[in-house]
């Protein structure tokens, strides 16, 4: 995985929530924005965890599927760019190759098995992701290339910012909140929380990881070295 400082082609967090908003507007649902849900995630040493994926599902109302999007995961300087995408189930992802070298990307994750040879200047049709789950992507030529796609059916999702926080406006009710990060050592169920968005304007949930993250991949190693 490469540094997250690389500019992302699209922000799926924004699109996901935007999609949910658009869906509400189309169905004529009541604008029940009652409160802002603020989730913040901290590592065991008290530092903010940025880039963590947060999903929120209402428990009182029937789940509403988020709107699919068209996302892009490019290949730049022998790395996936971005190296993590969160998309709504049913979304498509295009995998262009901006490098001068060829790539052969693959996934054998249960949520989507596929392989694509990406020769420079030769576009391929986008890949559709119809099942929820985490999809790990690799390149069969460059072993140090690693990326993740998280496909979700939660109506609210996004990633924590530099302060380790993510917020969304939601109707009142009970929610199940989940956290995911590629370097987490805790299980998904350990990081699921339920909370109630009540009468206040704002509902806060602070999550403290109990285990430190796995070390980040080394990203300044020259490409010509084996890894």
């Amino acid at each position: 995985m490469r540094p997250s400082t690389r500019p992302h082609r699209i922000s799926c967090a924004t699109r996901g929530v935007g999609g949910a908003l658009a869906l509400l507007a189309l169905t004529g649902a009541e604008p029940l924005w009652a409160a802002t849900l603020v989730i913040s995630v901290q590592t065991p040493d008290g530092r903010a965890l940025s880039g963590a994926v947060v999903t929120a599902r209402p428990l009182d109302t029937p789940p509403r599927r988020p709107a699919p999007v068209h996302a892009v995961m490019d290949q730049v300087s022998r790395a996936f760019a971005p190296d993590l995408l969160v998309i709504a189930v049913g979304s498509t992802v295009a995998f262009p190759n901006s490098d001068s070298v060829s790539h052969q990307i693959y996934s054998f994750s249960a949520a989507k098995r596929f392989q694509l040879p990406l020769y420079r200047g030769k576009p391929y049709p986008p890949v559709q992701f119809d099942q929820t789950g985490v999809i790990t992507l690799g390149c069969n030529i460059h072993d140090d290339m690693l990326a993740y796609l998280l496909v979700t059916d939660a109506p609210y999702f996004g990633r924590t910012d530099a302060r380790g926080a993510w917020s969304v406006d939601v109707p009142r009710g009970r929610y199940q909140v989940s956290i995911w990060h590629p370097r987490l050592r805790e299980s998904d169920t350990d990081l699921q929380r339920e909370l109630t968005v009540g009468d206040a304007d704002r509902a806060d949930l602070q999550l403290h990881l109990l285990k430190s993250l796995q070390p980040a991949p080394i990203n300044d190693r020259p490409h010509s070295w084996d890894y």
Binding site: Q104, Y106, F108, Q115, N140, I141
Partner: peptide, 10 residues
């Protein structure tokens, strides 16, 4: 010869 990995094996 470098076939794509299958089910975690390559």
């Amino acid at each position: 010869f470098r076939p794509y990995p299958r089910a975690g094996y390559r």
